[in-house]
């Protein structure tokens, strides 16, 4: 049994320790929002947060997450309130087929969490997830809107407005 925290809830999965986290999430925990695409950690479709860091779950043995905290796309929103990136993805109508977008959102949200002052150019340079539909133009616009909003919020907090 592998015990860890999944989207804030304690879970205990009866899976072989070497099984990739991706398949434990999809087939044992029943959370299919995390996608399988390349299986070798190249494309990023399976990205989840492990203790706040973005990891490619197809390449992480489930044993490695024992006692740690995993967040998937199903847990990115704060209850009913969408994560600002999710809302921006809707506002900017980013997804086409949408298959890569959970991974894209998890990768970018982890980056923003760890580096709150990241610029949209740095996001562009850092994120290597593949989108076959080619939604990059709108990903950039959506990220820019969130990053800018963060700056404004900071300004507001600092009394600079």
């Amino acid at each position: 049994m592998i015990d860890f925290t999944l989207n804030g809830e304690a879970v205990s999965l009866d899976v072989p320790p070497e099984m990739p986290l991706l398949w434990a999430l999809r087939e044992s925990a029943g959370l299919t929002g995390t996608k399988f695409s390349c299986g070798i950690g190249n494309c990023g479709a399976c990205t989840v947060h492990l203790d706040g860091a973005a990891v490619r779950s197809c390449s992480v043995p489930v044993a490695n997450v024992a006692g740690r905290a995993v967040i998937t796309i199903e847990g990115l929103a704060d209850g009913e309130a969408l994560h600002p990136l999710q809302q921006a993805w809707i506002d900017h109508q980013v997804p086409q087929c949408g298959y890569c977008q959970p991974g894209m959102l998890m990768a970018i949200s982890a980056l923003l969490e760890r580096r709150p002052d990241v610029t949209d150019e740095q996001v562009t340079e850092s994120i290597t997830n593949i989108c076959r539909c080619g939604t990059y133009e709108r990903i950039r616009s959506a990220v820019q809107s969130v990053v800018q909003k963060t700056d404004e919020d900071l300004d507001e907090e600092n009394g600079n407005v």
Partner: peptide, 20 residues
């Protein structure tokens, strides 16, 4: 707006791969 997009940003959209 497309009606299929909200489901695609919260992981609820069901693809052939996701059938259970």
């Amino acid at each position: 707006d497309r009606a299929d997009i909200p489901g695609k940003v919260v992981g609820e959209a069901g693809y052939g791969m996701d059938v259970v």
